[in-house]
Nucleic acid binder design. Structure first.
Length: 525
RNA sequence: UGCGCCGUGGAGCAGCGGCUAGCUCGCCAGGCUCAUAACCUGGAGGUCGUAGGUUCGAUUCCUACCGGCGCAACCA
């Protein structure tokens, strides 16, 4: 049993045959918010990401560039990580499935399943598509006019070979029992129903090896075969943390608290993966969260489209980061797309959201508070510990609100949490400024004005903490603008329940001409 | 075909048995001037896809239908 204060979170590993797009990034950011939040809640988080490299497509992509697979995948891994870093993703590890630790763990695992009697050899013949890396049924081929429906430009090969199969079918009953006993295993709820029905319909055994490939992991009990994609890919979650190479570390971190994955691959994670683990006698992950997809809104027709190379509507994260900012990218997707459901993207909508929530609201609030502190009190708020700076949130049931936010963030309901922070918290602060009118009050009552500004500084501190998992950079900028005593690294949601007590609060932000430089300049005219 | 999801003011979403159906953008009218022409208040705009049913009462539960979408073993 792993330590309850630990939190192990993973994302799907990506095929490095093309660069990541905003949909891939959506998943990583969603996982990152959870990782950051769990760290704030005091857990020792281990956050894993990686690339899925043991596939024929990768060696083909490398060959097109005249490269050997190894330098190709290493370069792609570097590029992927560059993007993740630019987005502020705080993963602790990045596994490439071509790494030694993965190969060793994989071979150990497949051997364990073999020893459990769940792997057998079976002859297979059929038409094989190199694009799909899969056999096609006669029906599929017939309907597509003798070609692969997904790759009509490739010629199907007639393949007759013996492959190894995993006896997934044996585990249907146990899987159903597991879903029953662990209602939270598959999230969100709608995906759960899908999987339960699927497994109830009966499971097939799956082919887990291929003959004649050199790039990939060799089957330990038959060196002529290599392990085939899924059986290999899923194992990254355990090989990365020491399965087969570091038993002590593995025992500490496993089972994973949550696998964050796309809705298209929930089946592999909710049926095949647990069946594999049951066979090998390894504990099951606690939760699988299948997030939705991001669709691209066609700016001319208004129609939502799946992003694809053929349509040519792919948006790369770097494009948005360079044009706007990584923080805006994170905010847009986390606030506009329910993580469990689907979302949409268009540049038009992006600019709209950015201007309203970032420039006009969050950024402007920061500017007006700092400017008044500098202008009226030269950045020194004395006697800050003598008052109770909670007037700014007088209308809110604060403990209840914080409790709700914690629950929402923990449940991946990011859009709801952000909506609430903007509506209730930022709304209250702006309303407080209007009703107290410190810019008028300063003319008659400096002491009362100071109290208002101490309240506002406290409000900014609270906002900084609440947005920390979502907008780490902005949050830190907010927090470091005043001399709050507690170290930024250690702040948590609970710290918003009671005001920070500092005798003299000092404005530490850099000002230009008495004002902060706008954090988020408005987009457009 | 099977399974699943969705259909709420012009756009994007929340609400999921019961106070005058909320929020963001846009629009209109005021207020304010500390602030990134930002902020605050008020207003116009909805038979909550259609037709039945359950109920004292349904946007919220059930059934059918219409429309959109997704998954169905390897497209994040």
């Amino acid at each position: 049993m792993s330590d309850p204060t630990r939190f192990y979170i993973t994302t799907a590993i990506d095929y490095p045959n093309s660069r990541p797009h905003i949909g891939t990034a959506f998943e990583k950011i969603g996982a990152d918010v959870q990782a950051r939040f769990q760290r704030m809640e005091g857990r020792a988080v281990h956050f894993l990401m990686g690339n899925d490299e043991n596939t024929i497509k990768v060696s083909q992509a490398a060959a097109r560039l005249g490269l050997e697979p190894r330098p190709y995948v290493n370069d792609m891994a570097r590029q992927f990580q560059e993007v993740w870093k630019a987005l502020g993703v705080s993963n602790d590890d990045f596994i490439q499935t071509s790494e030694e630790r993965h190969h060793v763990g994989c071979r150990k695992f497949i051997q364990a399943v073999f020893d459990a009697g769940d792997i057998y050899k079976k002859g297979y013949k059929g038409r094989y598509c190199d694009g799909c890396e899969a056999f096609k049924t006669d029906k599929e081929v017939e309907e597509a006019g003798g070609r692969c429906p997904d790759h009509p430009n490739l010629t199907l090969r007639w393949v007759e070979e013996e492959n190894y199969f995993f006896a997934q079918s044996k585990y249907a009953e146990r899987l159903l029992a597991h879903y029953e006993a662990n209602p939270d295993f598959i999230q969100p709820e709608s995906r759960r129903n899908e999987i339960v029905n699927y497994v109830k319909g009966g499971l097939h055994d799956v082919s887990i090896s291929r003959k004649g490939f050199t790039w990939g992991i060799k089957v330990p009990f038959d060196e002529e075969q290599t392990i085939y994609v899924w059986f290999d890919a899923l194992l990254n979650y355990i090989t990365a943390i020491g399965y087969g190479t570091d038993d002590e570390r593995f025992a500490q971190l496993w089972p994973a608290d949550v696998h964050v994955i796309g809705k298209d691959i929930t089946r592999f994670h909710c049926a095949l993966w647990p069946a594999m683990l049951m066979s090998a006698g390894v504990a099951l992950p606690r939760r699988v969260f299948g997030h939705g997809f991001v669709y691209r809104k066609n700016e001319e027709s208004g129609v939502l489209e799946k992003m694809s190379k053929t349509i040519g509507n792919i948006v790369e994260p770097m494009e948005i980061i360079q044009k706007f900012s990584a923080e805006a990218f994170r905010y847009y997707f986390m606030s506009q797309c329910p993580f469990g459901g689907d979302g949409e993207f268009s540049f038009e909508r992006f600019a709209e959201v950015y201007n309203a929530a970032f420039a006009d609201n969050l950024g402007n609030l920061y500017s007006r508070v700092l400017t008044m502190c500098a202008k009226y009190f030269e950045g020194r708020l004395e006697g800050a510990d003598a008052i109770d700076p909670t007037a700014w949130r007088a209308g809110l049931d604060w403990p209840a609100l914080v409790a709700e936010l914690r629950a929402q963030v923990g449940a991946f309901q990011y859009n709801l949490a952000l909506q609430r922070i903007w509506q209730d918290v930022l709304g209250s602060v702006n309303g407080y400024i209007t009703s107290m009118a410190p810019f008028k009050l300063i003319k008659t009552d400096p002491d009362a004005t100071r109290t208002v500004l101490i309240n506002l500084a406290e409000a900014l501190r609270v906002v900084a903490i609440l947005i920390k998992p979502f907008l780490p950079t902005t949050a830190e900028t907010f927090y470091r603008s005043f001399s709050y005593e507690k170290a930024w690294e250690g702040v948590c949601y609970e710290d918003t329940l009671s005001p920070a007590r500092t005798s003299t609060l000092i404005l530490t932000a850099e000002l230009v001409g008495g004002k902060p430089v706008p954090l988020f300049p408005k987009i457009g005219a």
